[in-house]
Write a protein that binds this DNA or RNA. Structure first.
Lengths: 228, 228
DNA sequence: AAGTTTGTATGATAATAGTCATTGTATAGC
DNA sequence: GCTATACAATGACTATTATCATACAAACTT
C-alpha cells in the first residue's frame, strides 16, 4: 500500500495542508477500502468513525424523508473528503453515502484527523473553507429547487455533470446515473425526469443512449437553466 | 458602549471561546450598528468586511433566483454571528441579510475575527462546529423542500417558529412574519401560503390575528409536518 | 437459456401549486 | 385625518408535476 506522503490525490484536497509528521502518522494507520457500485459507504443515523479520502470513483450523498423519498444533496469524487461531519460534531451522520461506481477510498481514523484539526491552523483553515463552500452550494441548491422549475433544474444538472465530470470526444458526459438517481438529484419523480430527458432529446438539446447523455446544444441548455 | 468582556450575548455564541486579550481587542474596535425593520444588513454579491454579532432582533438570510424570486435559507437571532462567510473565503456574500424587526448588532472588523480563527483552536473548533451544523440544516431544508408538500412545510415552519422564538401565554408565536416572508421561507407563492394558513385556521390547527399566529393543535401540526 | 427482477418509457388522469384578477384591509407619509 | 401604498384574502383559471397503469427492454439468477 502506498504512503500518503507520496500520494497524488491529496493535491486535490486539504490533506496537502498537513505536515510531514501528520501525514506519516495517518499513513501508518490508514486503510484502503473498496466499495462496489451501489454499496453504502456509511449510513444516515449512524456514526462514521473516521473520514474517507476518495481515491477513485464517484459517490452520492443523500437523505431520505419520512416517506422514503430520496434527495441527493451532493456528489463527491476523487480527492473529496467525506464523513468529516461526525468527526467534528460527534453527532450521527445525517446523510447516506453510496458508491455510484466502483469506489476506492482511504479510511482515516477519526483521531488522526481531529488532532491536526485542533493543532494545525493551516489544515483547520482549509477544512473550514471547504465546509463554508459546501454550505454555499447547499444554499444555492435549496434556492434552485425551491424557485426553479423541474425543466430548469434538469438542464442545470446536465450542465453541472458536464462541468464536474467532463465529456469524451463525442460530448458524452463521463458519468452515468440511473433515471432514479437523476430524479433524486433534480428533486422530482422518476417518471417526470424520464419525460423531461425525452423532451430534451426531441428538442435536439441532448442525445440519449441508454444511461449515456450526449450534449448537443449547450448554449440552449444554459438558456433553459436560467429560465429564459 | 459596553465591553465585550462583560457582554452576556456571547454566552450564546462562539465568542465565549475567545481569550480575555482577544475579547479586549475586539471590544476596542467593535461598533454597535442598528437596523430598522426591513433594512438590509449586507447584500448578496458584495463583500461583508466584517462579522456581526446580533445583540437583539431577528433577521432573514435569503437569496434571489434569476427571476427575482426570493428564498429564505435561514433565520438568525440574538447571539448568532453572521457574515463570517466572506471573512473565511474572501468571496462575496451569496446571501442577503435583512432585519425582520429592529436589530442591533455589534460589528467586528474582519481582521479581529480572522486572527483568533487562525490562532485560537478552541474558537476555530467552535466556529467549525457551527458551520457544520448550518450545513446539516441546509441539507435538511433541501430535502424538506424537495420531497415534502407545501402543506407539510408550512406545518413544519410554524413548529420551527414556535421552537425557535417561543410563544406567549396565549400560545401566540413570538415573531411576526409577513405572508410573503412565510411564503419565501416555505418555498411557495404568497397566495398559496395565505390559502394554506386559512385552511389551517379553518381546520382548527391555528388561529390568525393579523400577522400573529396562535398554535391551537400542535400534535396535529406535527402529524401534518410528517405527512401522516 | 429461461425466468425473474429491475429499469426505462409513455399514456391517462389526478393532485398540487402557480398566476392573474379583484376586493378588502392595514399601514405609512403627508 | 386623509390619501397613497403596500399587504392580505379569495375566486377563477392554468400550468406543472405526481401518481397509477401498462408495456417493453435490459440485466441478473440459477
Amino acid at each position: 500500500m502506498g504512503r500518503c506522503e507520496q500520494c497524488l490525490i491529496k493535491q486535490f484536497n486539504n490533506l496537502n495542508a498537513l505536515s510531514k509528521e501528520e501525514l506519516s502518522r495517518i499513513s501508518d494507520s490508514k486503510d484502503v477500502h473498496t466499495f462496489k457500485k451501489g454499496e453504502v459507504i456509511f449510513d444516515e443515523g449512524k456514526f462514521s468513525s473516521g473520514v474517507y479520502c476518495i481515491k477513485d470513483g464517484v459517490c452520492k450523498l443523500s437523505q431520505l424523508n419520512a416517506n422514503g423519498k430520496e434527495q441527493i444533496v451532493k456528489f463527491s469524487k476523487k480527492g473529496d473528503l467525506i464523513g468529516y461531519h461526525s468527526a467534528i460534531t460527534h453527532e450521527p451522520s445525517t446523510i447516506t453515502v453510496t458508491a455510484l461506481n466502483d469506489v476506492s477510498a482511504c479510511y482515516i481514523p477519526q483521531d488522526l484527523i481531529k488532532k491536526p484539526l485542533e493543532e494545525n491552523p493551516k489544515f483547520a483553515g482549509a477544512m473550514f473553507k471547504t465546509v463554508c463552500s459546501d454550505l454555499k452550494e447547499a444554499n444555492n441548491a435549496m434556492t434552485n429547487i425551491s424557485t426553479n422549475t423541474v425543466h430548469q433544474r434538469m438542464a442545470d444538472l446536465i450542465l453541472f455533470l458536464k462541468e464536474t465530470y467532463g465529456v469524451d470526444d463525442n460530448n458524452t458526459i463521463n458519468i452515468q446515473l440511473s433515471r432514479k438517481e437523476i430524479a433524486s438529484s433534480v428533486g422530482t419523480a422518476t417518471e417526470s425526469a424520464i419525460r423531461i430527458l425525452s423532451s430534451f432529446k426531441k428538442d435536439g438539446l441532448i442525445d440519449l443512449d441508454g444511461k449515456a447523455i450526449v450534449i448537443l446544444d449547450e448554449s440552449e441548455l444554459k438558456h433553459l437553466a436560467e429560465g429564459i
